[in-house]
Write a protein that binds this DNA or RNA. Structure first.
Lengths: 348, 348
DNA sequence: ACTTCTAACAAAAACGATTTTGCACGTCAA
DNA sequence: TTGACGTGCAAAATCGTTTTTGTTAGAAGT
């Protein structure tokens, strides 16, 4: 039982029961100072028995940090709703929170940002910016404030303030050519791309990968851009554009699941059967994709791994000796579902 | 410009430029102590000019708090995925974060909980538990640890540890009878209910409201429970159950939007036209509802308001003199869409 | 035997606020 | 004219750690 007479167990309580000074306890637990191993171990067991947990505020006061990490979804005038795909963000966020808490830090979420000053009155030791868009003023203000930043997805433009950048990302280029190959294998002759304006690195990568693939395969690129807020409606209209053309594709890859869902609707509206006459695949798996009609083949981005990795990099960046952690590349996969199973269950 | 020679502007810097002691600055800004109004104002303006922002750690150290609020979605063995509706949670979370940050506090999210000890090593001053389920061990452990708790949705069972409970909720009973009336007005003869096992107060309220309404209207209750993880598939199967009965309903109200989306699928699978032969309405609006085929009428719960209100109550609870804030009731509404517009655009 | 070194720990000084206590100086009543 | 009291502010203690600087005792070197 903890010392109930005075509330919480402090370093002094541990020191008292161990018969040493608070200094010694601090050194023993942190591995610093010069102490005999016997004393270290003795103190460690006593601290554990007493259930000692250091006061975070006191520790932070000395270290000059707050113990808080921030996470924001990037946004700008042009692309207000960076959140885009809720499932993706929730999974990333959930994993990031777990990773942060495991290391004794708290993750502060600024879900949809209203003001430019990021976290308001709350000071964070560092921040994760999800899917930075090209002209997000937040990155500049964080850089200017000297806040360590890790982005998931890479920044656009020249490095800000001469500071090396730290990021976590998928290999979207490879993921894109991978899914295109998948579609080709399933019998696609011509593949169209539905995507957004290239304000994020994953969009730029997907477009680059698509063009590269087209060149190799000798296909003319067919790209339709979704306009306005990113939702099924935008995907519907973009897919419409492709399907209404003279030489419509018989497969569509959409760089966001909501766009892919919209493409499904567009096909249905035109009476185009899926997957026999049109195959559709989307990027980022989601509940909606899994339950769509027909279920949607999706590129999985492992958002949990991205979240964990971003937190790890950010903590390294904050605690490190000034060296910047290496960028991390998180593997992707393809979740094959009915929307692209032409060969196996389609024309036959 | 802030005093760049020594990093950040502290209370001493303000005191120095104002020609007073740190004590006086503290008193002036907090409104405590005995100071002339002239001095107070003078110091306030100087502090503002210098951009003084008190060090949170130091302040927390004195107050014995951490400045952190936790938020968790309730879960238990029986109902593992409390998250249920992502849109709802994201909106609630986003608003809650904003409200917390506005009051200088950080909100720590534990998205999907893995362990029973809630926030791990991170101490929170209080916690918001979203949609508490009947047998969630977390509530007990928070109560036992003396952590102030506000729930969104009401707890089940007797009050824990004799402490009065603080909650924020919608009037789900009224919302339910409201949507049932809506359906009746649109021409529904028999209305079925698709819901989950009553582990949350909103489900219990909805069922109670439904039974009450049935009794008043002289209809035999037709309730189908969704089993397993809550998603469109579960809703599909529950709706199937109703539609396959001898006397199938011509309208369905589902207490979660994912269930309602599943009901749409079930109707389509049976070739039942919506809304002419079956009307469907769901609880909690979402992107998916808005873009469903046909667009789904939904009860809106104002999650933003719930989030803000919960944060406000929690801060009152923490800072208050021991008195427990009154429960808050957040208004609901009905967002009418095509899935229930039988009279206006249906049979005709 | 006297310095010098090192191991093992303790005392004291931060960290930056808040809170408690102390101290002048006026004013007012007796 | 003298205590009592109120006003306006400053000094000092406090919160619970970490970090820096001592301090002591024994070993080792000369």
């Amino acid at each position: 039982m903890a010392d109930s007479s005075k509330g919480r167990v402090g370093i002094k309580d541990v020191a008292a029961t161990a018969g040493v000074s608070p200094t010694t306890v601090s050194h023993a637990l942190s591995g610093k100072g010069r102490l005999s191993d016997a004393t270290r171990e003795r103190i460690a067991t006593i601290a554990a028995e007493l259930g000692y947990r250091p006061n975070a505020s006191a520790r932070n006061l000395v270290s000059g940090k707050t113990g808080l990490l921030g996470i924001v979804v990037s946004a700008s005038e042009e692309s207000p709703f960076g959140l885009g795909d809720f499932d993706y963000f929730i999974q990333l966020l959930s994993a990031a929170t777990g990773a942060a808490v495991e290391r004794g830090r708290a993750l502060v979420v600024e879900g949809i940002r209203t003001r430019p000053d990021a976290f308001g009155e709350v000071d964070v030791d560092g921040a994760i910016v999800v899917d930075p868009v090209s002209d997000d003023p937040l990155l500049d203000s964080l850089d200017a404030a000297g806040v360590p930043v890790v982005t998931t997805g890479r920044r656009d433009g020249p490095p800000g303030y001469g500071r090396p950048e730290c990021w976590v990302d998928n290999d979207h280029r490879a993921a894109t050519t991978g899914v295109l190959d998948h579609l080709r294998t399933r019998g696609a002759a011509t593949i169209g791309l539905v995507t957004t304006v290239p304000v994020t690195s994953y969009t730029r990568d997907a477009i680059a990968g698509y063009r590269e693939w087209c060149e190799q395969e000798g296909q003319a690129p067919k790209i339709a851009f979704a306009k306005g807020p990113i939702n099924e409606g935008a995907g519907f209209r973009a897919a419409e554009e492709l399907l209404a053309s003279d030489d419509p594709p018989d497969a569509i890859y959409a760089t966001l699941d909501q766009l892919a869902l919209g493409a499904l609707l567009a096909a249905r509206a035109r009476g185009i059967e899926i997957p026999s006459r049109l195959m559709v695949a989307g990027c980022t798996d989601s509940q909606a994709s899994a339950w769509a009609d027909p279920p949607l083949t999706a590129v999985t981005l492992n958002p949990e791994e991205i979240g964990r990795s971003a937190v790890a990099s950010l903590i390294d960046l904050i605690e490190g000796d000034g060296s910047v952690p290496e960028p991390a590349i998180v593997p992707t996969g393809i979740l094959e579902r009915e929307s692209t199973s032409r060969i196996s269950s389609g024309v036959s």
